[in-house]
Nucleic acid binder design. Structure first.
Length: 310
DNA sequence: CGCATCCCCTGCCTGC
DNA sequence: TGCAGGCAGGGGATGC
């Protein structure tokens, strides 16, 4: 699934077509994804304008006119696709069938469709507003959409416990050391904990640890000295996390299986992976003769070089 | 509190 | 060729 860079890329793809536009029609094609949809989900969106769309951790957060926030998560396989509305005659003529020409995906797992329109937009002949179709496709259905009242948003259980944004100024070595001090968990589990750093996932944790030259199996408490001050490792790790996320966003994220941009194009940061999914490959670090090894931590694959990651 | 384990679900790849 | 098993970017619930 999308980690922070992928969700950020999706957010940047959706914002231009969704922000300021109105939900003209919403299709909710099943009762639940990971969780049941909110009560009257469709009715609470239709007719309302989307005021803002931002990312928090791996969530998309939309501010809906009328005092509610639309919280969306892509799970492992969620994908948004933006396309101009298909003219009714083409559908009626059966020219499209169960297939998206933009993405090559079957429509079987299209669970939600937003039809958006801008009030002031008219086509060349002035015949009504131009609408855009935004389709949410999610084969595994680990994603979800929730509507939360504005006043309750920051206290909501999915938001309240989230840690620091790793690309914000609040994320630095002092913060990291304080959070890690005394912890006995291993470094990988620590970095995956969304209550500490919000947005890292399995790929970018492995990649950041490689860049920092740190073993994923190292004690997370070793990011702090006895007084809770940051060690040099913490300094290196902060830089590595920032850099890998920044590079990945610049590359439009990583495409492994399901992920794509909202226009159907693909991210290409997967070509820049140094360790992730590279078991058995020689370590790419200059001067290191090690080999990339796969291990399992908390039931999930970890990739690291045993030679230069200590 | 922290931590491991299992679960949710579908699709794809591997090996027999 | 078919089929079983393992694995996949997520997080939540549970039990210790």
């Amino acid at each position: 699934m999308p980690e922070l860079p992928e969700v950020e890329t999706v957010c940047r793809g959706l914002a231009p077509v969704m922000v300021g536009a109105r939900f003209v029609r919403v299709e909710q094609r099943r009762a639940d994804l990971r969780f049941p949809f909110p009560e009257r989900f469709v009715e609470r969106l239709e007719g309302r304008r989307l005021v803002t769309l931002t990312r928090r951790a791996k969530y998309l957060v939309g501010e809906v006119e009328g005092g509610e926030r639309l919280l969306m998560h892509l799970g492992m396989s969620g994908r948004f696709t933006v396309a101009p509305d298909v003219p009714a005659p083409a559908v009626a003529a059966g020219k499209l069938g169960d297939f998206h020409h933009e993405t090559g995906l079957g429509a079987t797992h299209d669970h939600v469709v937003f039809h958006m329109a801008r009030d002031a937009t008219r086509d060349a002949r002035g015949q009504g507003a131009t609408t855009t179709t935004i389709t949410y496709n999610d084969p595994r259905r680990f994603g979800f959409m929730v509507l939360i009242a504005e006043a309750e948003f920051t206290m909501h259980k999915m938001i309240a416990g989230l840690g620091v944004e790793p690309l914000s100024n609040a994320f630095d070595a002092v913060f990291l050391a304080k959070a890690a001090a005394g912890r006995t968990s291993d470094l990988k589990a620590f970095l995956l904990d969304q209550r500490v750093i919000a947005g890292l996932g399995n790929i970018y944790v492995s990649e950041a640890l490689f860049r920092a030259g740190l073993s994923p199996h190292r004690l997370s408490g070793s990011l702090a000295d006895r007084r809770g001050r940051p060690t040099l490792r913490a300094e290196r790790l902060v830089i590595a996390i920032r850099d890998v996320l920044t590079d990945a966003i610049a590359a439009g994220g990583s495409t492994l299986r399901d992920y794509a941009h909202t226009d159907g194009s693909l991210g290409y940061f997967q070509h820049a992976f140094k360790v992730y999914d590279r078991e058995g490959a020689p370590c790419p670090r200059t001067g290191c003769c090690g080999t990339i090894r796969r291990s399992v931590q908390a039931g999930r694959s970890t990739y690291a070089c045993g030679g230069c990651q200590r």
